[in-house]
């Protein structure tokens, strides 16, 4: 399954506005997409509550995975959001 591994750069981590932007983008996609912290259990990237509960801090790694039409493009965009400072 296509995936991207990125380091979260934002000072607030994958919380607050970065989390909202990330989930909003994921929710627009017609395909399933997940995000996992480090080697942890993947959660639904369209669920703000699940993403917040991952508690990803600045400097931590996440793995974003999706499969299906447009997956590569979606993953590039999500990776860019997650790694934006």
């Amino acid at each position: 399954m296509p995936e991207r591994r990125v380091t979260v750069q934002a000072e607030v981590g994958l919380h607050a506005r970065p989390a909202a932007t990330f989930v909003q983008r994921a929710a627009q996609a017609p395909i399933a997409v997940t995000v996992a912290k480090g080697g942890g259990e993947p959660v639904n990237a369209k669920s703000i509550l699940s993403v917040l509960a991952l508690d990803v801090r600045q400097g931590e790694n996440v793995v974003i995975s999706a499969e299906g039409e447009g997956a590569e493009e979606l993953l590039d965009e999500l990776a860019a959001i997650a790694s934006a400072p």
């Binding site: 607050a16 909202a20 909003q24 639904n44 369209k46 669920s47 703000i48």
Partner: peptide, 16 residues
């Protein structure tokens, strides 16, 4: 607005 929109996203959470 940021805070309230984040809350709106929580209310629309698919997992919930």
């Amino acid at each position: 607005q940021d805070v309230l929109e984040a809350q709106a996203m929580m209310a629309r959470d698919p997992g919930l």
